[in-house]
Amino acid sequence: MKLLKNIDKKTFIAIGVLLVVLSIVPHLAKLSTITLMSRIFILAVYAMSYDILRGYTGFINLGHALFFGSGAYIGGILFTKIDNTMGVFVLAVIITVIYCSLAAYIMGKIVLRGGGVIAAAMITLALGEIARNTAERWRSVTMGADGLPFKIPDIFRDRLGFYYYALIFLIIMTIILRQFILSPTGRVLMAIRENEQRATFLGYNTSKYKLIGLQVAGITSGLSGVMFGILNRFANTDLLSVQQTLNALLITLVGGTGTLYGAIVGSAFVNTVQNYLLDLRSVHPIFERWLLFFGAMYVVVVLFMPEGFVGLWNKYLKDRRTKKNSRVFEKGL
């Protein structure tokens, strides 16, 4: 019950209803919708991993796709080279966790030295590009730019079944990340976000905590990459590209940074819009260029909606509450 400690009754009911709806919907929906929703769930986890970094530590990592892509490749390579069984899946998960925490450690050691958001953004972009480049050239293992198609364990083959796995994955990861944010370490990260200098004065080794944050984000991202690979039964270098990192950034921006749940809202919005626009390709070829819309959405959000949907919603709630309070106050007079 400790998990539910901080959730009030109303929210609890809302989440319950949402879960019931989400378990019934796939039985009524088209296959394409089921796939889209699985995609939304997995990318929500990926975006949450980004939110841990950007929203809770304020650090803009432009090489974040490195973890995501690596997860997809680790799964793909193991399924291809060993066997497509559940045992190998578990192995892939374990290796992804180890690999991503190591990679995050190295990345952190390089980035957190220079200090500053600017330097970090530039350096992580370079690191991410290097990873993508390496994957492209290491043809014997990754099949280079052609991409790596692979077979997946039978249990994941059914789209409907996989929908539930993806949903469970999202639920578990949300709970774990929420616990992380509420943990003492998470609190320190938030303190760093509010005022790094003060956290330093209080005696916290801020680099160490940021490194932990980066590792948690890296591992989460890697695991969502494994799931994304299984969903597509395919991995390619795009999954390691800056574009993939920007996907996470856009999702968290649209949803609202520093909220975790914003990532879920953002993922639903961005993926649905993308799906819709790509469906319009038959109407006009301009819709082939999804990135144009992607970029435009991005710029608009940064300029006009820096708080995202969740931010707007919170503001609405707050306004309503203060209005209510002031009304009570007036009555009192």
Partner: peptide
């Protein structure tokens, strides 16, 4: 606003590369 600068120039990068 450093984060917004990074984000907005990234957005322009995406748009104009696709153009």
């Amino acid at each position: 606003n450093v984060p917004a600068q990074i984000l907005i120039t990234l957005g322009l990068q995406v748009i104009f590369t696709d153009l």
